[in-house]
Design a binder for these strands. Structure first.
Length: 567
RNA sequence: GCGCCAGUAGCUCAGCUGGAUAGAGCAGUAGCCUUCUAAGCUAUUGGUCGGGGGUUCGAAUCCUCCCUGGCGCGCCA
């Protein structure tokens, strides 16, 4: 059990006994201890008495006195009531040293929770397979991996999933782009996918199939750009169905290979790639698509209007109802997605997290509405949004467009600054904050980068520890170990912090924690030479160094960043 | 027009489920390398927490109105 949980139990018992309250009476008031930010306030402090003052109609300081009198724990050295009525407690030195001992003996198991028997499914990236990943997708990717890792640290069994939009119009346009790239260079490229990768795909495809043999459209085409594309797609579909289908399949597979490679280079691997096309045909009653509609209808949440079938999502707070089946009987993209979530639900995870770019925020309500209609009682869906990444070059904003092929690819960025720097940089900001990313500056800054600062602390630990390891069987000095308040405070409370970061889905807090821990260690390092002649002092400082190293390593690994032992 | 996100030091950002004097990094200034890696440390300058009201023992944090910026509001995907 965590230190802080032991202390809180004691605190709650004391409150119960002193005022004959039941736990339910104050459960919501959040009365527990928090680790102090300043040594003046002890190791932990609680504002319980301030929060209870009104309810108990008594002065906060009196309440604090009474509660602290009943606060019994061998972990506590001293209790004081300060300020308006805060209860501040000081841990005994041996309680602190004992935590370091646990950390060093148990390594990552010290901070992690054991299997809590719950399964979580995290869906992220899921970008259309119509182009390589760009920098913006990278943010979703690193967020997804970090959140998955955080959940794992809390004992969840986590699966990572990518939803592949392989069925829609976008793929037809991709195929069309490849055809026109090959046979008609003078064609206006508006609305088509462009860029080097289209040319690569075209070349590769024409090696096995001669695209020049496909028919040339001779009918007159619409002036409307969108409509024109649809006419061309329809033409190739009917005139050269075999080649068309071959090309579509080829294009999807090639693009997915590219995306997979981009992700792998970032150290990100999904457990499952779910294809949109696999939700099946609505006319097939065994398909999840049909089952999804059936499930919603069963709850009396569908209705017909204008020949279409609608879902009454406004019942869940959506701003309008949503079409499931179009007037022509075809499922909407939305229904396909509902079908996908039906499939997820049937796979019986307890917890679902979807990580979406903020440009999809309008989509959140309608998908949670459908999910809540179809889910089982024990299941829940949560959507984590991340704001977009704006790219700047020399202070000028770069517009990004997959269509035009004018984008900064994740792969290009990775080649320039490395995947771990990208991860650290993206994860450092909280997800609902837009990132203004200046490519040149990121490169320039790589020397004063917080990534290197944090890694450097770990490197310093390693370089000391390779000379000598701490040994609890040898002499050590508790006073020597505990004199570095900030450093000890962070190490000891790491498991609790980690739990909070996981619950809040906030890897950025972990990044900030690690930077601060690194700062505390750098400071310690300057004034406390570890490898000194006095064995007791050396061993004491080795204990601190080893504990720091374990926490840094553990935290970096959760961010999917490789801890360095040399720089 | 409606909805979501943001506005905190010159710059980039933490802190936001109310708590003790608002914190980092970068940039600036002044110091520290015969000693475990100076990609480091120490000291220091810099703040009407976008603005106005309100809620209370206490507000950067909650409510409300307004201002600015980004994004989204299809029987597209």
């Amino acid at each position: 059990m965590k230190l802080i949980d032991l202390l809180n139990n004691s605190l709650f018992d004391s409150i119960k006994n002193a005022y004959s309250l039941e736990k339910e009476d104050f459960q919501k008031l959040d009365l527990g201890f928090v680790s102090s930010t300043s040594e003046d306030h002890g190791d932990y402090s609680s504002s319980a008495s301030l929060k209870l003052a009104k309810k108990l109609d008594s002065s906060p300081r009196d309440i604090a006195k009474k509660i602290s009198d009943g606060l019994l724990s061998e972990l506590i050295e001293e209790i004081s009531v300060d300020g308006p009525g805060f209860i501040n407690i000081y841990l005994t030195r041996s309680a602190k040293v004992n935590e370091l001992k646990n950390a060093i003996e148990l390594k990552e198991q010290w901070a992690f929770k054991k299997n809590n028997r719950k399964k979580a499914l995290v869906e992220f990236v899921s970008s259309n397979p119509t182009g390589p990943l760009h920098v913006g997708h990278g943010r979703g990717a690193v967020l997804g991996i970090a959140i998955s890792n955080l959940l794992q640290s809390q004992g969840y069994q986590v699966d990572k999933e990518y939803y592949v939009n392989d069925a829609g119009r976008q793929i037809n346009i991709l195929a069309l782009s490849i055809i026109l790239e090959t046979i008609n260079h003078s064609f206006n490229r508006d609305g088509l996918y462009q860029g080097g990768y289209i040319n690569d795909l075209a070349k590769k495809f024409t090696k096995k199939t001669n695209l020049k043999e496909v028919a040339q459209p001779e009918m007159s085409l619409s002036d409307d750009a969108d409509q024109k594309l649809d006419e061309l797609i329809a033409f190739y579909q009917s005139e050269s169905p075999k080649i068309w289908n071959e090309l579509r399949t080829f294009a999807i597979n090639e693009m997915i290979d590219i995306i997979k490679a981009d992700l792998k280079n970032m150290g990100i691997i999904h457990d499952k790639w779910f294809y949109e096309s696999s939700v099946g045909d609505f006319n097939d009653e065994s398909s999840v698509l049909f089952q999804a509609v059936k499930g919603i209808t069963k709850k009396k949440l569908t209705f017909k209007k204008d020949g279409a079938l609608w879902f009454k999502s406004t019942d869940f707070g959506d701003d309008k109802d949503r079409v499931l089946l179009r007037e022509n009987g075809e499922p909407t993209y939305y229904l396909t997605d509902v079908g996908y979530h039906k499939d997820k639900i049937d796979r019986k995870y307890e917890h679902y997290i979807n990580i979406f770019g903020a440009d999809h925020h309008g989509y959140v309500k309608r998908i949670t509405s459908a999910f809540d209609t179809l889910k089982n009682d024990y299941q829940s869906l949560e959507i984590v949004l991340y704001q977009l990444v704006n790219l700047f070059e020399n202070g000028k904003k770069k517009q990004m467009s997959t269509r035009k092929g004018d984008f900064y690819s994740l792969e290009e960025l990775r080649e320039e600054i490395g995947s771990d720097v990208i991860k650290f940089f993206f994860l450092e900001k909280k997800s609902d904050h837009t990132i203004d990313f200046d490519v040149l500056k990121a490169k320039e800054e790589s020397k004063t980068n917080p990534y290197f600062y944090t890694q450097y602390a770990h490197v310093r630990c390693c370089s000391i520890l390779q000379n000598k390891a701490p040994d609890f069987k040898c002499m050590y000095d508790e006073k020597e170990i505990t004199k570095n308040f900030d450093l000890l405070n962070k190490i000891i409370n790491y498991p609790k912090h980690l739990e909070d970061f996981a619950n809040e889905r906030s890897p950025h807090s972990l990044v900030h924690f690690l930077k601060e821990l690194a700062a505390d260690f750098h400071s310690f390092y300057e004034t406390n030479p570890v490898l000194v002649e006095n064995d007791t002092v050396a061993n004491s400082r080795l204990i601190i160094t080893k504990a720091t190293q374990i926490v840094l390593q553990n935290g970096l690994e959760l961010l999917s960043v490789k801890p360095l032992s040399k720089m």
